[in-house]
């Protein structure tokens, strides 16, 4: 069971959280302007990174908030957690 550092509440055990998939996928403002291929990219195609992965978690059994995290999927170690709408911390990105 991982320990996850909620940017709002601090470190809590994984059981309080729900994983919410790849981060920084922004729903297009006007989906009707996308062709089927581009829409499918948004809907389904995922980086599935082996290594440092930007992903979303929700502190579902805590504050209820979604937030972003950088986690190394080869070790499950978190490099950083950060709020929705903010960019990944540069230092952690460099840690790749």
């Amino acid at each position: 069971m991982l320990i996850i550092d909620c940017p709002y509440c601090g470190k809590r055990p994984e059981l309080e959280f729900a994983y919410a998939g790849q981060a920084h996928l922004v729903r297009p403002r006007d989906p009707s302007t996308l062709d089927d291929e581009a829409w499918a990219q948004f809907l389904y195609m995922r980086a599935n990174t082996r290594g440092m992965h930007a992903e979303r978690w929700r502190h579902a059994r805590g504050c209820g908030r979604f937030f972003n995290a950088l986690r190394d999927t080869t070790s499950d170690r978190f490099a950083a957690t950060y709020r929705i709408g903010t960019a990944p911390p540069v230092a952690a990105e460099d840690a790749r």
Binding site: R27, R56, R58, A60, G64, F66, I84
Partner: peptide, 13 residues
């Protein structure tokens, strides 16, 4: 509720 929260917090803040 989780889906609603997702859109509320992350897509349409």
């Amino acid at each position: 509720l989780s889906m609603m929260e997702d859109y509320r917090q992350t897509e349409w803040p």
